[in-house]
């Protein structure tokens, strides 16, 4: 589990720091390799990604009434 000299805890912490950022430093390459070989960390990585995805997709419908109330308040109604 540790042949790249990164611990799982380090990997998990790094995932949290750099998700969505460039992953090309030597440290990141070591982490990518670790992810390929460690199911625990891979699952952790996936669950962090999924957490973000859940909050992205959880939206409310913006209904026309709310739009009309807004335009009225702003004095911009047609």
């Amino acid at each position: 589990m540790n042949e790249n000299n990164v611990t799982c805890k380090e990997v998990m912490s790094h995932i949290c720091d750099s998700l969505g950022e460039e992953l090309d430093s030597p440290k990141c390459v070591a982490i990518k390799n670790h992810l390929d070989e460690c199911p625990d960390c891979r699952q952790y990585f996936n669950s962090v990604e999924k957490t973000i995805e859940f909050y992205k997709l959880y939206n409310l419908e913006f209904n026309p009434d709310a739009h009309n109330r807004l335009m009225n308040i702003l004095g911009l109604e047609d």
């Binding site: 949290c16 720091d17 952790y44 669950s47 962090v48 957490t51 973000i52 859940f54 909050y55």
Partner: peptide, 12 residues
Amino acid sequence: LHRARAFLRKEL
């Protein structure tokens, strides 16, 4: 960001 992600993931 790091703490928020870890916290939410743990809660879920």
